[in-house]
């Protein structure tokens, strides 16, 4: 073997382990890129995007006083388009009090408990989706930054572990579809890479809004596994891993998805 060929083999050897199974940064694509032109047009026009109805609800809730403290989000945070700019891009984030990551919905509920002294919104409730949609809307066009905090390292590792763990009667890991076969179809639908750039989303199949957790539970049911409970630590770890896997991609929330 010539020295040049040896060098090429050595470089290949060095490059391969880093890429094994994972999608190269240049090949990453948002769910938006897999959609039909009609669905893209629906998302792009704020007066046709049904998720904007949820954002409208969120704007009302933002300024509505609630709880024993009789405070609205606006009373502490001020205008949402200033105070919440870029916030959704860095969630799930580390919460020092619980020494664990919390996602955006949990963060809203923590705020409700601690500062408004109000009852937490139920997972997937209209109110929680409306507030998270409103907050996520303020990060539209910004790059995802989640997972950068070093305190999140063990949770990221757990999320990655769950992502490659086979589960359910079909014995499939997330990675089997979304890392290895994202360029193919399952029946008529694109498999996609599972890049969570637009949550909460308006999903046409649901005819309604839903969080990333709802979407993940749908996938788990699809491989006939026992879906994680809402807000379970493993659910948050998986969300965290997915967001960090999409780090640098652009937020397009609140998105429309088929």
């Amino acid at each position: 073997m010539t020295p040049r060929a040896l060098l090429a083999v050595a470089l290949l050897g060095a490059a391969l382990p880093a890429l094994a199974g994972e999608i190269a940064t240049a090949d990453r694509r948002s769910g938006y890129d897999f959609m039909s032109p009609e669905t893209k047009a629906m998302q792009d026009d704020d007066t046709a995007n049904p998720a904007m109805l949820s954002v409208l609800d969120g704007e009302t809730l933002w300024t509505t006083k609630a709880g024993a403290a009789n405070k609205s989000c606006n009373d502490c945070h001020g205008a949402v388009d200033v105070s919440m700019k870029g916030v959704a891009a860095r969630y799930p984030a580390f919460n020092a009090a619980s020494a664990a990551p919390v996602d955006l919905g949990q963060r809203v509920n923590l705020c409700r408990g601690q500062h408004q002294e109000a009852e937490a919104f139920a997972p997937e409730s209209r109110e929680l989706l409306a507030l998270t949609a409103l907050i996520a809307r303020q990060s539209r066009g910004m790059p995802i930054t989640a997972g950068g905090d070093p305190r999140l390292t063990p949770f990221l590792a757990r999320g990655r572990e769950l992502f490659v763990q086979r589960q359910g009667q079909l014995n499939l890991a997330c990675a089997n579809c979304h890392d290895d076969n994202w360029d193919k179809h399952l029946a008529g639908s694109s498999i996609t890479q599972g890049q969570p750039t637009g949550y909460p989303i308006y999903r046409l199949e649901w005819q309604g809004m839903g969080s990333l957790q709802r979407r993940l539970r749908g996938c788990m049911t699809g491989v006939r596994a026992q879906a994680f409970d809402f807000d379970a630590p493993d659910m948050i770890a998986l969300e965290l891993y997915l967001m960090s896997r999409a780090r640098g991609m652009t937020i397009d929330a609140p998105a429309v998805r088929p």
Binding site: D45, D46, T47, A48, M52, L53, L56, D57, T60
Partner: peptide, 8 residues
Amino acid sequence: MAAALVNV
């Protein structure tokens, strides 16, 4: 809560 988006 009824919300409408109108574009004229």
